[in-house]
Every structure is written in C-alpha cells, then in structure tokens.
Design a protein around this nucleic acid. Sequence first.
DNA 1: ATGGCCAATAGAATTGGA
Length: 259
Amino acid sequence: MQIATWNINSLSVRLPQVLGWLAAHPVDVLCLQELKLTDDKFPFDAIEAAGYEAAAFGQKTYNGVAILSRAPLRDVVRNIPGFGDEQARVVAATLDAPGGPLRIVNGYFVNGQEPGSEKFAYKMRWMEALHDWLRGELAAHPRLALLGDFNIAPEDRDSYDPVGLRETIHHTSEERTHFRALLALGLTDAFRMFEQPEKTFSWWDYRMLGFQKNRGLRIDHILVSEALKPLVESCTVDRAPRKNQQPSDHAPVVAELRG
DNA sequence: ATGGCCAATAGAATTGGA
C-alpha cells in the first residue's frame, strides 16, 4: 500500500490537481496540509466520488489538514490533545490495513518565520507538545506513521544552500534538535532509508525561478514507527505536480509499504 | 539591493508562507 503527504496551499485552488494526481496515483492514504478553508467548504462529495473518505480539520484563511483514505477512518483526533491551539494543524486517524490497524498522524508544523520571533517560540512549544503526545500515541498504536509538512530541513543535504542559510528558518539547530527528538521516539525518516538522488527537495519558492533552478528544501516528510519500518519498500518525491499550471509550492512525498 | 510569487481577505494593501 502507498501513503503520501502533500501541502497543497489552498484546496479550493488545487482540488482539480489533487483529483488528477489521485487518478494517476491511487494511493491508499493522502495527507493534505494548508487547506485554507473551513470544514463546511470541504469538498467531501468530490473526494468521495474519487473513492476516498476524508477526515478534515480546517479553518478560515490559514492552515487546515485532512486525511484522505480508501479505507474507513476511525478514532479521529483533531489537534494535539491538551495543547490549546487556535490553529488547525493536526489530524490523526486509524484505518485497517493488511498487516493490522494503521495509525496516521498528519501534521502541518508551524513555519516559525524567524529565529527569536514569537512565531518561532510557538513553533518550539508546538513541537514539544507534539513530541510528548506522540509518545503515548506510539505506545497505543505501534503501527504509526507521521506525515506532513514539517517546515524543517533535517540536515544540510536537505537544503539547496546549507551554508548561506545556516541557522535561518528551517535550518536552525533548535528545529533540527526537535526533529531528532521525534526520531528518538522510535520514528524513522522513510526517505533516508534508501539511496536518493542528490538535491532531492519537496518545496521550491515561487519566486526567483526556484523550481527551475532547483533551489528547494526537503521539508515534507514521512516518519514510520519501528513496527512499520521493515515494511517500507520505497519513499520518493513526485516532482511532476510542481510543473503544473498554478502549482502548489510543495510536491507530494509517497512511501510504499509492503502488504 | 537580501527582492522577485502566490493565496486569502476585501474590495487596496496587508498578512503569511518558507
């Protein structure tokens, strides 16, 4: 089976591209971020017609996440329990898969704007809360995958300019420490389980011909638990949708799980 | 000179993204 994540930067604008991509890549699970719409405007009918159930958690203008799944979803959690958050950034759900129940956690991590800013402090608090909540989630659901837009380039090789951008947003030591703390829970970056082309990224700035020059970052990730790790057969970035007319600035990341 | 684009809101300029 295949699980995927894609920050689509407005579902209203990108719904046709999402449906088109799903038609060509009928993944079992697709986690979306930056819906930028409220749940009453979520296109449940079009998603259902494409063969998917959706657990949506949106808000007006900003943020918003959803899990699309071919199998029914249950035990849906919206945002991090106990962490009061005005912003819709997390949705989690369980589905039945060949090897047993699969827990999907979809996160739209805080951008953080600039180190030292209030938004950066919020990013740190948010990641600490996510980390602490995930410890229990992993204990309750050994077969767990954390997918989403992490807004962190975990290592220098995940950035087009690691020297020029050292300690800037997405590259700071603090952010990378938080990323490693997630790994220390027993999660593995599925992308790095395999040989990958140099300079593989998942986001490119709309400005400055970012995509054409491959000036990008790898900030969208799929992390898998110890129980899932032996089942991962591949993990790739699909650059093709970034070439669409009116593209999202992010590309989908897809992992193949055996079974 | 450190930007240039894109989306939402509103109905022009601002906020946020990364």
